[in-house]
C-alpha cells in the first residue's frame, strides 16, 4: 500500500493544486493514457497518489466535469467524455501560443533574432524532431 511512489513530486509550489490535478488529467487524455469513455481514478486515489487533500483533488476533477471533459455515472465514477480530446487539444493550442511562442518572441527580440531567422530556427527544430531519442540529445549539444 505504501510503496515509495513519488506522485507528490509532480505537484508544484505556488500554483493552485486543483488546477494542476485538472491539467494532469487533461494531459493523460491528450496523451491517450485516459481514452474517451474510460474511467478516471477516484478522487481518493488521486489524493493518495499525489499526497494532497481529497477535497482539493475533488475540486480539480469537478472542474473538468464543469468543463464537460469528464462526466459522472451515478454509483460508478467519473468517465472521460466523448470528444474531450479534440476539445482539449484545441484549447492547448491557444495556451501553447501564450506559454511558448510569446516568451520565445520576447527572447528572440532580446537577442536581435530577426523574424526570418526565428522562422528558420523553428523549421530547424521541427526538422530535428526526433523519431529516436538519440537525435534529441545531439540536437541540443
Amino acid at each position: 500500500m505504501h510503496d515509495d511512489h513519488d506522485g507528490a513530486a509532480v505537484i508544484e509550489e505556488g500554483r493552485p493544486i486543483f488546477l494542476q490535478i485538472a491539467e494532469l488529467i487533461e494531459n493523460d487524455i491528450i496523451d491517450g493514457n485516459l481514452p474517451e469513455e474510460s474511467q478516471v481514478p477516484s478522487t481518493t486515489e488521486f489524493a493518495a497518489f499525489y499526497r494532497i487533500n481529497p477535497a482539493t483533488a475533488a475540486k480539480g476533477v469537478n472542474r473538468l466535469v464543469d468543463d464537460g471533459i469528464l462526466y459522472k455515472r451515478r454509483g460508478v465514477g467519473m468517465f472521460v467524455a466523448a470528444g474531450s480530446r479534440a476539445t482539449l487539444t484545441s484549447q492547448r493550442k491557444e495556451e501553447f501560443f501564450k506559454e511558448y511562442v510569446k516568451p520565445m518572441t520576447v527572447e528572440a527580440q532580446k537577442l536581435d533574432i530577426s523574424p526570418e531567422q526565428l522562422t528558420a530556427m523553428v523549421s530547424r527544430g521541427l526538422a530535428e524532431l526526433p523519431d529516436n531519442p538519440a537525435m534529441e540529445r545531439s540536437g541540443s549539444a
Binding site: 505504501h2 489524493a47 493518495a48 487533500n53 481529497p54
Partner: peptide, 14 residues
C-alpha cells in the same frame, strides 16, 4: 511521517 500523512489522507477520504 510519510506514513502518518498517507494514513491521514486515506482515512479522511473514507
Amino acid at each position: 511521517r510519510q506514513l502518518f500523512y498517507d494514513h491521514l489522507i486515506e482515512d479522511y477520504a473514507e
